[in-house]
Amino acid sequence: MTVTSHDNVPTTVLDGAVKDYSRDKVYVMTALFLAVLTIIEVFTYAAPDFPVWADELLVPVLMILMAVKFFTIVYVFMHLKFDKPILTKLFYMGLVLAVLVYIAMLSTFRIWHNGQHG
């Protein structure tokens, strides 16, 4: 049975209703995971010659860490994981559109070429 927004459930009944269905532990673990990723990010600055991200691997490693943090926050903290799929589609529409538009713009300005720009 589905509860709708038109069901006039008294707040005294709802009080404590989801106590046994808490996701707080998931949230704390997610925050710890994000903290570890941030520490790794900062470590790339402190130790740029570390073998895992030495030389040309540094930027891809940072981009991957950034993407993992981004999607972890969006999925867990912003509830996309638990919410209706249409919200995921809506958000990705904006995100993909933004990425495509700005890749096109950066390409127009020859950002991929070495050296100073414009």
Partner: peptide, 29 residues
């Protein structure tokens, strides 16, 4: 009759998504 109403927890457990359905086409407020 009040206690027999579905709680948020029950709704949460039964549905793929986590939140109460809104009375709109999408079920989202």
């Amino acid at each position: 009759s009040l206690t027999s109403r579905p709680t948020l927890a029950a709704a949460d457990a039964q549905q793929a998504h986590a939140h109460i359905d809104a009375d709109t086409n999408t079920g989202i407020s």
